Simulated assay, not measured.
Amino acid sequence: MKLIHVFDAYCGWSYGFAPTLAELVRRHPGLDVEVVSGGLFTGSRRVPVGEFGNVQGANAKISELTGVAFGAGYERLIADGSFVMDSEAAARGVAALRQAAPDRIVELATALQSAFYVDGMSLSDPATYRAVAEAAGLAADGVAEAFAAPASATAANADFERTAALGVNSFPTLLAVQGDRTVAVAVGHASVDEIEQRMAALTAAH
């Protein structure tokens, strides 16, 4: 069995789901998890955060359900409502990190979301990827260069196309692939126990 985690680094619910995914991976070492960027804020949805309405209310609900905290740096970044979340840039960054350490992408995607939702670092800024890479012991210059390279834009678009092909339109969505069957085992929010039960049911049914 393998899992496909379709998320968006700029999605609050994806941020809330990160500890659940980390615990799932901890319980199942060696589990193959592919991380795909969904492209939530692209095209006409790439607008200042102030246009999204009650962001604080939504974040409070995410904190209440998942236990994640939104940091002071993030609150400062979005305070005046002018910050633009660009999911294409975030997907390029995920692609750069995935290229640098494919077997650590779950951990790196979580670190990337913390950089934004805790520290208030823009995912459009190469310095953010440099910092995440450095903290993870990766070649910081290489990751920052990969983020800016045309190949990362190609990879980001490939992720968006993959998301569409998988029929995913809600983030995060965790898919389990067993043989020729692909089943959603979590959409938005689920506990590790719930996900494990669904994975076990899929294995049993195969």
Rank of each mutant, 00 (worst) to 15 (best):
D103K: 11
A90S: 09
A60H: 10
S152M: 07
P102I: 11
A144Y: 05
G39T: 11
G73F: 08
N157V: 09
S44K: 12
A89H: 00
A144E: 13
L123C: 00
F147I: 03
S63N: 02
F41I: 01
A135R: 15
A153C: 01
G71F: 04
F83A: 09
R92S: 00
V55A: 06
R46S: 11
V132G: 04
A140Q: 07
E64A: 14
S82G: 08
A111Y: 03
S152D: 07
A140N: 09
A148P: 00
T154S: 14
L112C: 04
K61S: 08
L97W: 04
A109L: 12
V33K: 02
G93Y: 02
V55T: 15
L31S: 01
A144D: 10
L40R: 05
Q99A: 15
A89S: 04
V143K: 00
E161K: 11
R46C: 15
V68M: 04
S87W: 07
G39R: 09
S82H: 05
S124G: 12
A156H: 06
A127L: 10
V106F: 11
D125N: 12
A135T: 12
D141W: 06
V132P: 06
R45V: 00
L97G: 03
F52D: 02
A164E: 13
G57A: 10
F83Y: 14
T154R: 14
H28F: 06
L31C: 01
V33D: 05
V49A: 10
E34G: 04
V68F: 08
A127E: 14
A156Y: 05
D103A: 15
E107S: 14
V106C: 12
